[in-house]
Design a protein around this nucleic acid. Structure first.
Lengths: 129, 129
DNA sequence: AGAGCATATACGTGTCAAGGGATATACGAG
DNA sequence: CTCGTATATCCCTTGACACGTATATGCTCT
């Protein structure tokens, strides 16, 4: 359970993070809003805390949890390498053609052609009597 | 294993995706570059294919796999809600202060103050005699 | 001190996915 | 048809992890 990606793989944890982005919350508030048993909330918060996604401050018996951005940025950084790709991707381009810079259009064309050339269409030459 | 988040939680799959973003690859090429056994590669590719991360075309005995952007965009969309947060986050602001728009600076100030007000500092009034 | 609430932890259980290894399928070449 | 290569699938074992329930810790108020 080390990487940020494994942490956000869990739907309940994503829900907690989405909740916390609005404002800090106590365990009980999370428990009520997400309708999940308290130990479950605490356990997920523990995982999130140890992974650096959240931090808590003590307020009497309550713990107030709030978001920390770093691990999410790490995910965002990994995703960055694909943004170049999908903004040049054919389907995406078709959908967004109107909103795009025509110079990209030509760049994409070359990429597409390159791929097409790579593809070897083997002609099935199997006599089979 | 439905959500895109679970798919990219696996390090080997992330490696495969990072490889495919450069150009399409056959199973054997992936196998060699990532030094993982062929059945492992095939199994991960299957998962990726069924989740819509990649698609394959047949080239004789080879299968050429290439990236499809949609599921990654889904992840990116979920991450979007946090970008607003971390661009307003204090630490991030301190680090990037020089590169930022001063109008954001004031917006962040209000957010921070709001949070500070929410925090209840309970004064321990415990006579204890 | 004792009651009550808020939160954390411990334990037992079921599920599910990853990996290794062997094997099956598909295709091309001779 | 037979062999070699490329890829997919099958079986089995192992290990994580999520959850439920029960219980422990800590704090407040009276």
């Amino acid at each position: 359970m080390e990487s940020a990606f494994e942490i956000i793989a869990e739907p309940n944890r994503r829900a907690i993070l989405s909740l916390l982005v609005l404002s800090q919350q106590s365990v009980g508030e999370i428990e009520r809003q997400l309708r999940m048993p308290q130990p479950t909330v605490s356990k997920h918060l523990r995982v999130l805390r140890e992974a650096g996604f959240v931090e808590s401050t003590v307020d009497a018996q309550r713990r107030l949890y709030r978001l920390k951005p770093e691990p999410l940025q790490e995910v965002d950084d990994w995703l960055a390498q694909f943004r170049r790709f999908w903004s040049a991707h054919v389907d995406a381009l078709e959908r967004h053609l109107d909103r795009m810079d025509p110079s990209m259009d030509r760049a994409m064309d070359r990429a597409t052609l390159a791929k097409r050339k790579t593809r070897r269409k083997t002609t099935r030459l199997k006599p089979r009597t």
